[in-house]
């Protein structure tokens, strides 16, 4: 086993809570320098995966190696080399921005000499410099997340774990946040991020689609979209809701999802399209136009989850 190139490596990592499987024998390898996105709905097991890999939760069985250390046996070694940002804001709201950063600098034993430069840089790229003296509890959601990131980066970790960092953050701050992540990636940091937003997953170098404690597919976004193996058609219809139900019942249709007044239909074969359109028109639904499209990650995800 070569742990030198793998930043994270999990082998049949499993976690059960009172007999309920939260994570079902996860086997995964993430190379150094990857931006890995763990995507899935709430309750899929994303947070559990994060907690197991950051060694703050004990697996029921299996093991994982992070930065070359076993989460089972060397959890504390791992903690020295990773940065972690929990899903819920985990910093002290009654401490100022600066006090929080210094607190974490102390915990990670960041040398005094290096502090001024590092803190200045972290505050700079997160645009928090003007809010140094503000209580963390008085920051906006987006700024809180950036402060969380700054604290997780104070000791220049090799691997960064971010649990739904942009949950509940406005779109502008979200874009800012991802801009920062790309910058970190350039510095060679491996990033493991979870998200419920599929548009964010498209920004990762690699994505794992998670559902009910299992990673269904794990590849680059482009390859995942190409891997669907079914033609995807976009239909403009009237009364999209009724149309969705009808289309779902047609032969040769694998999955249907709705986007405003458009339907994305995954078909077994391209020929099945004529049948779908004919059926819709027979039911009195106007089909204004149709075209084949490249499936989005969401389409793939839904097609995989709906697979019988």
């Amino acid at each position: 086993m070569d742990t030198n190139t793998a930043a994270i490596k999990a082998e049949t990592l499993t976690k059960t809570f009172n007999g309920n499987i939260a994570l079902d024998s996860l086997t995964l390898e993430i190379k150094k320098g990857e931006l890995f996105g763990l995507v899935g709905p709430d309750g899929a097991g994303k947070t559990t995966t994060m907690r197991l890999l950051t060694a703050i939760m004990e697996p029921t069985s299996g093991d994982a190696w992070v930065a070359g250390h076993s989460v089972l046996k060397e959890g504390e070694r791992i903690k020295e080399r990773i940065g972690y940002m929990s899903q819920k804001f985990g910093l002290y709201e009654d401490l100022t921005v600066m006090e929080n950063i210094i607190f974490y600098a102390d915990l990670y034993e960041v040398p005094q000499k290096e502090r001024p430069e590092r803190i200045e840089r972290l505050l700079g790229f997160s645009n928090l410099t003007p809010f140094k003296g503000r209580l963390a509890g008085k920051l906006s959601g987006g700024m809180k997340q950036k402060l969380g990131l700054a604290c997780a980066l104070i000791h220049t970790p090799e691997i960064l774990f971010l649990d739904e960092p942009t949950n509940g953050v406005d779109p502008v701050s979200r874009r800012d946040f991802w801009r920062i992540l790309y910058g970190l990636l350039k510095d060679g940091i491996t990033i493991f991020v979870s998200t419920a937003y599929l548009d964010e997953a498209e920004r990762c170098t690699r994505v794992g689609l998670m559902h009910r404690g299992k990673i269904l597919i794990d590849d680059s976004p482009a390859r995942i979209k190409g891997s669907l193996g079914f033609p995807m058609v976009e239909l403009w219809t009237g009364d999209a809701r009724t149309a969705e139900d009808i289309a779902r019942g047609c032969p040769g249709v694998r999955s249907v999802s709705i986007y405003g007044n458009r339907l994305h239909v995954a078909l077994e074969r391209s020929k099945a399209l004529d049948g779908v359109i004919g059926r819709l028109q027979k039911e009195g639904i106007i089909v204004r136009d149709h075209r084949s499209i490249l499936p989005s990650l969401e389409d793939v995800f839904i097609a995989m989850v709906e697979e019988p």
Binding site: R51, T54, A55, I56, E76, K79, E80, I82, Y84, M85, S86, K88, F89, G90, L91, Y92, E93, Y104, L107, Y108, G148, C151
Partner: peptide, 14 residues
């Protein structure tokens, strides 16, 4: 309760 412990135990603090 406040969720600050999760962040704290992810550091090497003993």
């Amino acid at each position: 309760e406040r969720g600050t412990m999760e962040q704290l135990i992810a550091t090497p603090v003993k």
